[in-house]
């Protein structure tokens, strides 16, 4: 089936099978391999991208459902080669180790801060409940989001 959508600001048109998930579409059809797949049950959040401005688990959206939408992936977050403030904060505060959950974490953090520019620690922790990290114990991820909030508000 033919789908047309905007990905990271570019209009793309592709022919996909109905079985293709948005995550597979991004990875296999567009080679945007920053979106990772860590589970089959919509639990881990590694595949999080934004769809029409909202964080979604792209493994649980069919590519055909994303027809006509605007998708931003981790690859589309930084502008002109400079890191987005959330990416910057993750780097500054060691919010990542193996890097596999990182794109999903960052995309979710961007969403959290869009909705709540001054989240408390508990609000950040709740906001990240749909994303697993096995490396960091979440400590520096939460710190990173706190600092990202500060720099976005500055």
């Amino acid at each position: 089936m033919e789908i047309n959508l905007s990905v990271n600001g570019s209009q793309v048109a592709r022919d996909v099978t109905p079985m293709t998930t948005l995550s597979d579409f991004l990875r296999e059809h567009l080679s945007l391999t920053g979106t990772h797949i860590g589970c089959d049950t919509s639990s881990c959040g590694a595949c999080t991208v934004t769809m029409d401005g909202k964080a979604v688990k792209s493994c649980t959206v069919l590519a055909v459902q994303a027809n006509g939408s605007e998708i931003i992936t981790i690859e589309g977050l930084s502008e002109n080669g400079s890191l987005h403030p959330v990416q910057e904060a993750f780097k500054e505060h060691h919010g990542l180790q193996c890097g596999f959950c990182t794109p999903g974490m960052v995309m979710t953090a961007v969403d959290i801060l869009q909705n709540n520019p001054n989240p408390t620690e508990q609000e950040i922790r709740h906001g990240l409940e749909g994303n697993f990290c096995r490396c960091t114990g979440y400590h520096n991820i939460v710190k990173s989001v706190q600092h990202a909030a500060q720099s976005l508000n500055a």
Partner: peptide
Amino acid sequence: IGDVQVRYR
């Protein structure tokens, strides 16, 4: 219900 991503969809 679920988590933030699930609630959006």
